[in-house]
Design a protein around this nucleic acid. Sequence first.
DNA 1: GACCTGCTGCGGAATG
Length: 825
Amino acid sequence: MGIGQEIISDWFKSKKWQQFPFQKEMEAAFLDGYSGLLNAPTGSGKTFAMFLPFIADYINKHPEDYQTRKNNGLQLLWITPLRALTNDIRKAMQTVVDDLGLPWKVGTRTGDTSAKEKQELKKRQPEVLLTTPESLHLMLALKDYPKIFENLQAIVIDEWHELLGTKRGVQLELGLSRVKNLAPATSQAKQLQIWGISATIGNLDQAAEVLLGVDTKKVGIKLIRAKLNKKILIESVIPENIEKFSWAGHLGIKLLPQVMEIVANSKTTLIFTNTRSQTEIWYMTILEKYPEYAGIIAMHHGSLDNELRNWVENALHNELLKVVVCTSSLDLGVDFRPVDSVVQIGSPKGVARFMQRAGRSGHHPGATSKAWFVPTHSLELLEGAALKQAIIEEVFESRDPILLAMDVLMQYLVTLAVSDGFLPEPIFRELKTTYAYADLEQKDFNQILDFITKGGKTLSQYDEFLKVEIENGLYKVNSRKVAMRHRLSMGTIVGDVSMRVKFLTGGYLGSIEEGFISKLKIGDNFHFAGRSLELVKVKEMTAFVRKSTKKKGIIPSWMGGRMPLSSQLSAMLREKLDEVARGVEKDIEVQALQPLFQLQTKLSHIPRNTEFLIEKFTSRDGHHLFFYPFEGRLVHEGMASLFAYRISKIKKANFSLAMNDYGFELLTDDEVVLQQALDSDLFSIDNLLDDIQQSLNATEMARRRFRDIAHIAGLVFTGFPGKAMKSRHLQASTSLLFEVFSEYESDNVLVRQAYHEALQFQLEEYRLRAALQRLQTLKVVITESEQPTPFAFPILVDGLSREKLITETMEERVAKMSMRYEKLS
DNA sequence: GACCTGCTGCGGAATG
């Protein structure tokens, strides 16, 4: 990847790092023995080098802390979420270490490290080791692992914001809690120092607490904010003719000419899209309409072959490319010096994410980051105004830490049992010092111990679940097979089962979900990795293809996540809408949208911040009700089901639901008793949990979450590397386990966790609750129109696609809509 | 022809 070691070396020799405004503060805190969190802005990827002189300095000042020996052993452990970065950082760090005159070796340990290299690591630990959270745990599964860490002076966790709020973060918390107790305090009473580096997020104080654990009183926490005044220039791309611009949709391809103008006027542009299929579509369309870009355009997303991705990254770095279409696969880590423009297609869904992406341009000190926001439908343009405002006001999303993840804990305990074995009491005490397990109850801990030794209440008959044996109180794995399988399935990332896509001649293109391939017939044509391909045969989870000359072809879609609009951006959007309602027209986005707002006012209403808009409209499909909480898609999903349930309690009705980030629709055959529902506490939070359970298939949601939980907890074996099992197989086994536990062991920690996760992550119960409470304070405004309003239209389109009505209906409707629109405006 | 979606990230053995 893109960090040149020469650059780092020069940068270091010229002592540029001393010019960082936070350097003095950082150095003082480090030399005083503090642990803490450094809030470095995105784009100062070299902060790492700063730590090396600190450590060298510390050694000079406190030689008594370092025993005189030929091999100091591991001094600094550097943890990064991105494996791909470790190699370049290693080279760069080695040059810095050499420049400092330290007789140190810098090494890496990741999945890329060969067996031979691992053997060498065992013989001689490098003084600086770069690794990932997963590899740290693999180290904890080695015999005599405490020896590795006994001389450790400092741990640095890079990009901590990326891990916080994920199970990878929890796994890292666990790893740190163990390692902390292996590096004893030295003569200076100096403790192992732990420093995180994080981009700006809303809860930096909490981020520090999570990283350092709840036992940090002795150590002391410092939070250092870098406050580099990075200039960011943000512009929305305004459609030339807003009246002809789409009211719904997500592709945004209509604005291609404007985007290509930006590309032409920039040195190098990154075009960020929200989905992989969208990346494929934009790439193809650009090549089709602007063939002169052949050779200087590339694409990058998570399902493409690594070799291709590496090539793209290097080409970007070496200024060989003019434009790269990508997903968030290019969000992280890399210094792409030549990039001077960033284009975001569609909603970035959050302020912090947009900032991160904007920071990919002008990636050097003093340079300005330039980012464009390209709306994919009219109303989304308002998000551009909201984004700008949020960035001015420095409103950033928080990353909420995950608490009491029992699956991760179960995996961790088996890891410790695989290496030297563990005694439950001290480990329990150690767990209680972590943020994630501070509230861990003894009985749940015992249940997990019981499970890994005896298979719990239900699985005691099956050998494969009896992993850990107890010898004189020591919990230990003795079976080589169990140990091996455990090492094979460590980590918290549960991938989708996907098929490799390969040319008959051997070239590897990437991976596509099993489900997509199974829909294709042999001989069918599809587009992938920017190529037109023909499916030739499918063999053992590999789809063999050959080049095709056909222009047309389906583009694969992946079942990815569905990120909702963040609550911060949602709130700002409501703020902007309030301005619109008050007639404030200071933003160019708002000015451009005037025709749309005028129509909305004419047909319905634009809600103030103190109002909750509900629209009624009747079509041949039935009675439509549109609600506009502007709270993000997931909250709307839960709220739509909840409202449907509560309304049908008054008068029986079947509803079909549709939603987007701005609002949701309830559609039914009969007139809805709306007023009655409003009068009888439609927005109430009393019985909320019960009503949710009643209105949604909570069991099904939990079952789906359980699949990942079972994987992480080690209940299912996913097969040997390169020999993936079919997803049907895995689905069946996790589903069966879920059934068995639910029936015979209702208190099972993992099942409880599945329900909890469904509520928390799928439904965003906390946000739903807060949203209902907000609605209670608002004045309800109900309007009725003869046709869908501009606000309603995108939701209607969402509903149409969901119900899979035939295309003509949809087209007809769209055509009719625009005719009416022209008449009205 | 299309206003019909949905991210990222890491690991890994033994045998023939």
